[in-house]
Design a binder for these strands. Structure first.
Lengths: 144, 144
DNA sequence: CCGAATCCTTTTCGATACTG
DNA sequence: CAGTATCGAAAAGGATTCGG
Protein backbone atom coordinates (compact mmCIF):
# COMPACT_ATOMS: atom_id res chain seq x y z
CA UNK A 1 0.00 0.00 0.00
CA UNK A 2 1.49 3.24 -1.17
CA UNK A 3 0.55 6.17 1.07
CA UNK A 4 -1.08 9.20 -0.46
CA UNK A 5 0.89 12.22 -1.55
CA UNK A 6 1.07 14.91 1.10
CA UNK A 7 0.49 17.93 -1.09
CA UNK A 8 -0.29 16.22 -4.36
CA UNK A 9 2.34 18.06 -6.34
CA UNK A 10 5.69 16.57 -5.44
CA UNK A 11 7.81 14.83 -8.06
CA UNK A 12 7.29 11.14 -7.43
CA UNK A 13 10.88 9.96 -7.24
CA UNK A 14 11.70 11.85 -4.05
CA UNK A 15 9.07 10.86 -1.58
CA UNK A 16 8.55 7.40 -3.04
CA UNK A 17 12.20 6.59 -2.55
CA UNK A 18 12.22 7.98 0.96
CA UNK A 19 9.01 6.42 2.16
CA UNK A 20 10.03 3.11 0.66
CA UNK A 21 13.23 3.41 2.64
CA UNK A 22 11.39 4.07 5.86
CA UNK A 23 8.86 1.31 5.24
CA UNK A 24 11.51 -1.28 4.51
CA UNK A 25 13.19 -0.46 7.76
CA UNK A 26 10.04 -0.23 9.82
CA UNK A 27 10.99 -3.31 11.83
CA UNK A 28 13.74 -1.47 13.60
CA UNK A 29 12.74 2.07 12.68
CA UNK A 30 15.68 4.33 11.96
CA UNK A 31 17.84 2.87 14.67
CA UNK A 32 21.39 4.05 15.07
CA UNK A 33 24.42 1.99 13.97
CA UNK A 34 22.42 -0.51 11.95
CA UNK A 35 21.23 2.28 9.70
CA UNK A 36 23.62 3.62 7.04
CA UNK A 37 21.70 6.86 6.79
CA UNK A 38 22.21 7.62 10.44
CA UNK A 39 25.85 6.87 10.02
CA UNK A 40 26.36 9.16 7.07
CA UNK A 41 24.24 11.99 8.35
CA UNK A 42 26.02 12.04 11.66
CA UNK A 43 29.12 12.65 9.63
CA UNK A 44 27.91 15.43 7.44
CA UNK A 45 26.20 16.69 10.50
CA UNK A 46 29.25 18.16 12.10
CA UNK A 47 30.18 21.76 11.67
CA UNK A 48 32.98 21.44 9.12
CA UNK A 49 32.91 18.24 7.08
CA UNK A 50 30.73 19.47 4.25
CA UNK A 51 32.58 22.76 3.99
CA UNK A 52 35.88 20.95 3.59
CA UNK A 53 34.45 18.75 0.87
CA UNK A 54 33.17 21.84 -0.94
CA UNK A 55 36.53 23.52 -0.62
CA UNK A 56 38.16 20.47 -2.20
CA UNK A 57 35.60 20.15 -4.98
CA UNK A 58 37.53 22.04 -7.63
CA UNK A 59 41.10 21.04 -6.87
CA UNK A 60 43.40 19.51 -4.29
CA UNK A 61 44.48 21.92 -1.60
CA UNK A 62 47.09 22.16 1.08
CA UNK A 63 46.41 22.45 4.74
CA UNK A 64 46.96 26.19 4.86
CA UNK A 65 44.88 26.76 1.73
CA UNK A 66 42.01 24.96 3.39
CA UNK A 67 42.33 27.22 6.39
CA UNK A 68 42.01 30.21 4.12
CA UNK A 69 39.03 28.69 2.32
CA UNK A 70 37.19 28.15 5.60
CA UNK A 71 38.41 31.14 7.56
CA UNK A 72 36.90 30.43 10.92
CA UNK A 73 38.00 26.85 11.39
CA UNK A 74 40.71 26.20 13.95
CA UNK A 75 43.75 24.10 13.19
CA UNK A 76 42.51 21.59 15.67
CA UNK A 77 39.18 21.05 13.95
CA UNK A 78 40.69 21.15 10.48
CA UNK A 79 43.11 18.39 11.41
CA UNK A 80 40.41 16.31 13.01
CA UNK A 81 37.93 16.72 10.17
CA UNK A 82 40.56 15.83 7.58
CA UNK A 83 41.51 12.72 9.56
CA UNK A 84 37.91 11.55 9.73
CA UNK A 85 37.42 12.08 6.02
CA UNK A 86 40.62 10.21 5.27
CA UNK A 87 39.50 7.39 7.53
CA UNK A 88 36.25 7.10 5.60
CA UNK A 89 38.13 6.99 2.33
CA UNK A 90 36.68 10.25 1.05
CA UNK A 91 39.99 12.00 0.66
CA UNK A 92 43.64 11.11 0.48
CA UNK A 93 46.61 12.78 2.07
CA UNK A 94 49.90 13.36 0.24
CA UNK A 95 53.04 14.52 2.01
CA UNK A 96 55.71 16.28 -0.03
CA UNK A 97 59.16 16.16 1.61
CA UNK A 98 59.91 19.82 1.02
CA UNK A 99 61.37 22.16 3.59
CA UNK A 100 59.21 23.03 5.36
CA UNK A 101 56.94 20.07 4.59
CA UNK A 102 53.74 20.57 2.65
CA UNK A 103 50.71 18.32 2.69
CA UNK A 104 48.08 18.12 0.02
CA UNK A 105 44.57 16.78 0.37
CA UNK A 106 42.47 15.62 -2.53
CA UNK A 107 39.13 13.92 -2.92
CA UNK A 108 39.18 10.25 -3.75
CA UNK A 109 36.86 8.85 -6.39
CA UNK A 110 34.50 7.94 -3.59
CA UNK A 111 34.71 11.43 -2.17
CA UNK A 112 33.89 12.92 -5.54
CA UNK A 113 30.68 10.94 -5.73
CA UNK A 114 29.48 12.79 -2.65
CA UNK A 115 29.72 16.12 -4.45
CA UNK A 116 26.56 15.44 -6.37
CA UNK A 117 24.28 15.16 -3.33
CA UNK A 118 26.08 18.08 -1.71
CA UNK A 119 25.65 20.25 -4.79
CA UNK A 120 21.98 19.44 -4.66
CA UNK A 121 21.81 20.65 -1.06
CA UNK A 122 23.78 23.80 -1.80
CA UNK A 123 21.51 24.66 -4.70
CA UNK A 124 18.49 24.15 -2.48
CA UNK A 125 19.97 26.41 0.16
CA UNK A 126 20.58 29.19 -2.33
CA UNK A 127 17.11 28.89 -3.82
CA UNK A 128 15.27 28.91 -0.53
CA UNK A 129 17.23 30.92 1.98
CA UNK A 130 15.22 34.08 1.42
CA UNK A 131 11.98 32.25 1.95
CA UNK A 132 13.35 30.61 5.09
CA UNK A 133 14.53 33.91 6.50
CA UNK A 134 11.07 35.35 6.00
CA UNK A 135 9.44 32.32 7.60
CA UNK A 136 11.65 32.75 10.65
CA UNK A 137 10.77 36.40 10.96
CA UNK A 138 7.05 35.63 10.74
CA UNK A 139 7.32 32.88 13.32
CA UNK A 140 9.27 35.02 15.75
CA UNK A 141 6.91 37.94 15.30
CA UNK A 142 3.94 35.71 16.14
CA UNK A 143 5.51 34.63 19.41
CA UNK A 144 4.46 36.00 22.82
CA UNK B 1 40.01 30.66 -15.06
CA UNK B 2 38.40 27.33 -14.42
CA UNK B 3 40.52 25.07 -12.23
CA UNK B 4 41.50 21.68 -13.52
CA UNK B 5 39.49 18.58 -12.72
CA UNK B 6 40.82 16.66 -9.74
CA UNK B 7 40.51 13.16 -11.11
CA UNK B 8 39.43 13.99 -14.61
CA UNK B 9 36.35 11.80 -14.51
CA UNK B 10 33.73 13.64 -12.53
CA UNK B 11 30.47 14.72 -14.15
CA UNK B 12 30.85 18.42 -14.84
CA UNK B 13 27.73 19.79 -13.23
CA UNK B 14 28.71 18.85 -9.69
CA UNK B 15 32.12 20.30 -9.18
CA UNK B 16 31.60 23.21 -11.55
CA UNK B 17 28.61 24.37 -9.55
CA UNK B 18 30.42 23.93 -6.27
CA UNK B 19 33.69 25.53 -7.25
CA UNK B 20 31.84 28.40 -8.85
CA UNK B 21 30.06 28.86 -5.56
CA UNK B 22 33.28 28.95 -3.62
CA UNK B 23 34.98 31.26 -6.08
CA UNK B 24 32.12 33.74 -6.07
CA UNK B 25 32.29 33.93 -2.34
CA UNK B 26 36.04 34.05 -2.09
CA UNK B 27 35.96 37.61 -0.73
CA UNK B 28 34.53 36.52 2.53
CA UNK B 29 35.19 32.79 2.24
CA UNK B 30 32.47 30.61 3.62
CA UNK B 31 31.81 32.84 6.55
CA UNK B 32 28.99 32.02 8.94
CA UNK B 33 25.69 33.93 8.97
CA UNK B 34 26.26 35.69 5.66
CA UNK B 35 26.44 32.33 3.92
CA UNK B 36 23.17 30.49 3.22
CA UNK B 37 24.95 27.18 2.93
CA UNK B 38 26.36 27.46 6.41
CA UNK B 39 22.93 28.31 7.67
CA UNK B 40 21.21 25.36 6.06
CA UNK B 41 23.89 22.84 6.83
CA UNK B 42 23.99 23.77 10.47
CA UNK B 43 20.34 22.89 10.51
CA UNK B 44 20.50 19.55 8.79
CA UNK B 45 23.58 18.99 10.79
CA UNK B 46 21.88 18.30 14.05
CA UNK B 47 21.10 14.82 15.18
CA UNK B 48 17.41 14.62 14.36
CA UNK B 49 16.21 17.14 11.77
CA UNK B 50 16.80 15.04 8.69
CA UNK B 51 15.30 11.95 10.28
CA UNK B 52 12.12 13.83 11.08
CA UNK B 53 11.86 15.11 7.54
CA UNK B 54 12.27 11.58 6.22
CA UNK B 55 9.66 10.30 8.61
CA UNK B 56 7.24 12.92 7.28
CA UNK B 57 8.08 12.32 3.63
CA UNK B 58 5.23 9.95 2.88
CA UNK B 59 2.44 11.37 5.00
CA UNK B 60 1.60 13.69 7.87
CA UNK B 61 2.16 12.16 11.29
CA UNK B 62 1.19 12.83 14.85
CA UNK B 63 3.64 13.48 17.62
CA UNK B 64 3.49 9.95 18.97
CA UNK B 65 3.78 8.44 15.51
CA UNK B 66 6.97 10.38 15.00
CA UNK B 67 8.31 9.03 18.24
CA UNK B 68 7.69 5.52 16.99
CA UNK B 69 9.30 6.29 13.63
CA UNK B 70 12.46 7.55 15.29
CA UNK B 71 12.59 5.26 18.31
CA UNK B 72 15.51 6.74 20.19
CA UNK B 73 14.51 10.39 20.15
CA UNK B 74 13.39 11.90 23.43
CA UNK B 75 10.22 13.95 23.74
CA UNK B 76 12.36 16.92 24.51
CA UNK B 77 14.36 16.73 21.29
CA UNK B 78 11.36 15.83 19.20
CA UNK B 79 9.53 18.91 20.43
CA UNK B 80 12.51 21.13 19.87
CA UNK B 81 13.28 19.79 16.39
CA UNK B 82 9.66 20.17 15.31
CA UNK B 83 9.61 23.74 16.56
CA UNK B 84 12.71 24.66 14.63
CA UNK B 85 11.35 23.12 11.46
CA UNK B 86 8.10 24.94 11.91
CA UNK B 87 9.95 28.17 12.46
CA UNK B 88 11.81 27.71 9.19
CA UNK B 89 8.55 27.07 7.39
CA UNK B 90 9.43 23.49 6.48
CA UNK B 91 6.49 21.94 8.27
CA UNK B 92 3.16 23.03 9.68
CA UNK B 93 1.48 22.08 12.91
CA UNK B 94 -2.21 21.28 13.16
CA UNK B 95 -3.98 20.89 16.50
CA UNK B 96 -7.21 18.90 16.60
CA UNK B 97 -9.36 19.74 19.61
CA UNK B 98 -10.12 16.14 20.48
CA UNK B 99 -9.92 14.70 23.96
CA UNK B 100 -7.11 14.04 24.57
CA UNK B 101 -5.72 16.52 22.05
CA UNK B 102 -3.90 15.30 18.96
CA UNK B 103 -1.41 17.24 16.91
CA UNK B 104 -0.45 16.51 13.36
CA UNK B 105 2.68 17.62 11.57
CA UNK B 106 3.00 17.81 7.82
CA UNK B 107 5.60 19.10 5.40
CA UNK B 108 4.88 22.40 3.74
CA UNK B 109 5.50 22.88 0.04
CA UNK B 110 8.86 24.32 0.94
CA UNK B 111 9.62 21.36 3.16
CA UNK B 112 8.77 18.97 0.37
CA UNK B 113 11.32 20.59 -1.91
CA UNK B 114 14.00 19.55 0.54
CA UNK B 115 13.15 15.89 0.06
CA UNK B 116 14.89 15.79 -3.28
CA UNK B 117 18.36 16.70 -1.94
CA UNK B 118 17.80 14.46 1.06
CA UNK B 119 16.81 11.52 -1.12
CA UNK B 120 20.00 12.07 -3.05
CA UNK B 121 22.01 11.85 0.17
CA UNK B 122 20.17 8.77 1.38
CA UNK B 123 20.77 7.02 -1.92
CA UNK B 124 24.44 7.86 -1.71
CA UNK B 125 24.62 6.51 1.81
CA UNK B 126 23.07 3.23 0.78
CA UNK B 127 25.32 2.87 -2.24
CA UNK B 128 28.54 3.59 -0.40
CA UNK B 129 28.21 2.48 3.18
CA UNK B 130 29.91 -0.85 2.57
CA UNK B 131 32.85 0.81 0.93
CA UNK B 132 33.08 3.31 3.75
CA UNK B 133 33.00 0.62 6.39
CA UNK B 134 35.87 -1.15 4.63
CA UNK B 135 37.85 2.07 4.35
CA UNK B 136 37.46 2.63 8.08
CA UNK B 137 38.63 -0.86 8.88
CA UNK B 138 41.70 -0.43 6.67
CA UNK B 139 42.54 2.90 8.20
CA UNK B 140 42.19 1.62 11.74
CA UNK B 141 44.24 -1.46 10.98
CA UNK B 142 47.06 0.71 9.65
CA UNK B 143 47.21 2.70 12.85
CA UNK B 144 49.86 2.19 15.55
C1' DC C 1 54.28 24.37 7.46
C1' DC C 2 51.74 20.89 9.54
C1' DG C 3 50.04 19.05 13.35
C1' DA C 4 49.88 16.86 18.33
C1' DA C 5 48.67 17.74 23.19
C1' DT C 6 46.49 20.03 26.79
C1' DC C 7 43.08 22.73 29.00
C1' DC C 8 38.85 24.96 29.17
C1' DT C 9 34.21 26.81 27.47
C1' DT C 10 30.04 26.16 25.00
C1' DT C 11 26.57 23.52 23.04
C1' DT C 12 23.83 19.51 22.72
C1' DC C 13 21.38 16.04 24.42
C1' DG C 14 19.03 12.63 27.70
C1' DA C 15 16.59 11.52 32.06
C1' DT C 16 13.26 12.67 35.00
C1' DA C 17 9.35 14.79 36.83
C1' DC C 18 5.33 17.54 36.11
C1' DT C 19 0.99 19.93 33.43
C1' DG C 20 -3.53 20.81 30.57
C1' DC D 1 -1.69 12.82 24.11
C1' DA D 2 1.35 16.30 23.71
C1' DG D 3 3.90 18.75 25.58
C1' DT D 4 7.13 22.02 29.55
C1' DA D 5 10.79 22.60 33.04
C1' DT D 6 14.95 21.59 35.18
C1' DC D 7 19.14 19.30 35.80
C1' DG D 8 23.42 17.16 34.78
C1' DA D 9 26.33 14.43 31.61
C1' DA D 10 28.66 14.28 27.42
C1' DA D 11 30.28 15.86 23.21
C1' DA D 12 32.01 19.46 20.27
C1' DG D 13 34.70 23.15 19.65
C1' DG D 14 38.28 27.09 20.67
C1' DA D 15 42.73 28.88 22.53
C1' DT D 16 47.14 28.04 23.50
C1' DT D 17 51.42 25.82 23.66
C1' DC D 18 54.82 22.82 21.86
C1' DG D 19 57.47 19.81 18.30
C1' DG D 20 59.42 17.74 13.75
Amino acid sequence: MVPRLPGGNLPQADWVALSAYVEERSEWGLHPERCPVRNVLSHLGDKWTTLILIALAAEPRRFSALQRAVPDISKRMLTQTLRDLERDGLLSRHVFPTKPPSVEYRLTTLGQTLLDPIASLVAWAERTHNEITEARARFDAAQP
